[in-house]
């Protein structure tokens, strides 16, 4: 499965807005390219990304083939309580990659 990385600050104060950075290795094949014989290379991209904070969905994103290979995504979260930040990437073929990180909120 695709290799994913997630970076979340280890500690934050309650109410702080933190930055979550995510990176996943994926070819993001557009479906427009052709191989040497002129056959179209079928599309294979990550089309959906969801971020859960302690099990509650906070951000969802739908991607088109115009997202670069090895997609990077950074976004903000409001630190409310200690727990887990989880990001789930969904491939065109339905397979999911999950990566999570812990955060302590004081």
């Amino acid at each position: 499965m695709a290799k994913a990385r997630l970076k979340v600050p280890k500690k934050a104060k309650k109410g702080d807005i933190i930055t979550v950075k995510s990176l996943i290795s994926h070819p993001m094949e557009t479906g427009q390219r052709k191989d040497k014989k002129g056959n179209k290379i079928p599309r294979k991209i990550i089309n959906n990304v969801v971020c859960n904070y302690n099990g509650k969905k906070v951000l969802e994103s739908n991607w088109a083939p115009a997202i670069s290979a090895n997609p990077y995504l950074a976004f903000n979260l409001r630190a409310s309580e200690s727990g887990t930040v989880e990001v789930i990437w969904t491939d065109d073929d339905g397979s999911k990659t999950t990566q999570s990180a812990k955060i302590t909120v004081s």
Partner: peptide, 13 residues
């Protein structure tokens, strides 16, 4: 609203 800010960074083609 839990995002705190509508702010994203990404890379496109």
């Amino acid at each position: 609203p839990d995002c705190g800010a509508a702010h994203v960074s990404f890379r496109c083609r």
